[in-house]
């Protein structure tokens, strides 16, 4: 564990708490993509189910439990509790375009060996799927052209999590000679998807302006 990864994990955790707070206080899931949230549940379940047979540390296990349960809870809030506030007509990104390529890639590029095939394929599937899981949300943002400030804080914390993993990998390469090409390449792509969002967040939201996309 190093400071970058720890801050990244905290940022990830914070983003989820912000999202839950936003939905509960506004009693609405307006501006939130159900499809992105569904993808995160798939990502967390396929990656963190190893919680049952792998023990790394208490921190690791608790975080995995948190991510699985909180993402499921968010899905419940969106799909059941505040379902009337859901507007499927703007959340139109097609999920098979993301899930199928991630599944095919995971069958080709993975760390499977004789001992572990399924768990390794599931792990790489979750990494590939996570790298693009934000796309339905960004697509929704693009369609509406604006976002509530709280939603942009959520997205910023989520993007910061992935961005912080980059110095973590550089640090691990320098200190442990540890390189995980699947995680690194996917992570770089995932972070790059936030570039546009980060730009508007820093130039507008931080200065107290509303998040609006240029026409």
């Amino acid at each position: 564990m190093n400071i970058f990864r720890f801050l990244g994990d905290l940022s990830h955790l914070t983003s989820i708490l912000i999202l839950i707070h936003k939905i509960q206080t506004s009693r609405s899931c307006r501006g939130i993509s159900y499809k992105t949230q569904l993808l995160y549940v798939i990502v967390f379940v396929s990656r963190y189910l190893d919680l049952v047979w792998t023990y790394v540390s208490l921190y690791n296990s608790l975080m995995k439990l948190f991510f699985i349960s909180s993402s499921s809870y968010i899905l419940y809030l969106i799909k059941i509790r505040f379902r009337p506030t859901l507007d499927p007509s703007i959340d139109t990104f097609s999920l098979p375009y993301l899930i199928i390529p991630a599944a095919i890639l995971s069958l080709i590029f993975n760390y499977a060996d004789e001992k572990a095939w399924l768990s390794e394929v599931l792990w790489s599937f979750s990494i590939y799927l996570e790298s693009v899981a934000i796309l339905p949300q960004l697509f929704l943002l693009q369609r509406t052209g604006e976002a509530e400030t709280i939603t942009t804080h959520y997205l910023f914390a989520l993007g910061a999590y992935r961005a912080l993993y980059i110095p973590n990998w550089i640090y691990r390469y320098a200190t442990e000679s540890f390189v995980d090409p699947i995680a690194i390449i996917s992570g770089l792509i995932q972070t790059a998807l936030y570039a546009d969002f980060f730009y508007i967040y820093f130039t507008k939201v931080i200065r107290g302006q509303k998040f609006e996309l240029p026409a």
Binding site: M1, R5, D9, H12, D50, T54, V56, S57, N60, M63, K64, F67, Y111, D113, A116, E120, W123, Y165, N168, E176, F178, D180, A183
Partner: peptide, 10 residues
């Protein structure tokens, strides 16, 4: 060695 310690990241 790769498989042994990669799973510590979330």
């Amino acid at each position: 060695p790769h498989n042994e310690h990669k799973k510590d990241e979330l």
